[in-house]
Amino acid sequence: MNTSQTDTFNNASFKMPSGGTVIEINNLKKSFGEQEVLKNISLKLFNGENLVVLGKSGTGKSVLIKCIVCLLNSDGGKINVFEKNVTELNRKELGELRQKVGFLFQSGALYDSMTVKQNLEFPLQRIKKNLTKKEIEDKINEVLENVGLADALNKMPSQLSGGMRKRISLARTIVVDPMIMLYDEPTTGLDPVTSDEISSLIIDVQKKYKTSSIIITHDIKCALKTANRIIMLNEGEVYKEGKVEDFKNSTDPLIKSFFK
């Protein structure tokens, strides 16, 4: 954990758990009307690891991580983040939690009406209120250099390519030093070269910012490159959980269809 992270974290009501489990989900259920998307999901994210959640489209992968930050309310089960049940948090506590959890959206979700600089300033000014103008500028330049787009400062999102938008979106997420990163299909819609670059960036972020991450994907190359552990979802339930090698060597037809 870097120094700035330690300071902010110790001041907050969310404490790093002693056991090293940063997220623990038990029997999570979520339905949309008649459709049961998540049936009985249980998983753990350990400190410092990259957990890849694999699965076909519509198996509830994105719903799972949206439930973690309460963008969607779960119908049942328990979601503990830093040993606090997120479903029981009040608005203030939820705000504090969201400062610790970065979320990279599938579409990038950059604010169209703002420049890249304003996009990065937006969360910084709201989450790290005590920073001076100079510190904000330094922080923005630092993260832009980290994602390899230092010259995009004054561009509008419409002037950026798909890969650049993903990088800027990643920069906007890491600019507030989150401790947990949730990636929602980070390589979807990108060419293989850019996908590989984004996968490398995910590893760089893990190393540099000491983050623990859940990566939602169905891109096997990305999964193999970034994962420390993999969980496969099927029909709203955990189908298999294990190390990368367990999945590679599996004879299960569904798993083989992903890894062939």
Binding site: R98, F105, A109
Partner: peptide, 20 residues
């Protein structure tokens, strides 16, 4: 149109997770 497109492109959700 502006808020609708922000909703479709997940910008409103992004705002929410930025503690705004």
């Amino acid at each position: 149109a502006e808020l609708g497109s922000m909703k479709v492109t997940e910008q409103i959700e992004a705002m929410e997770v930025s503690s705004t």
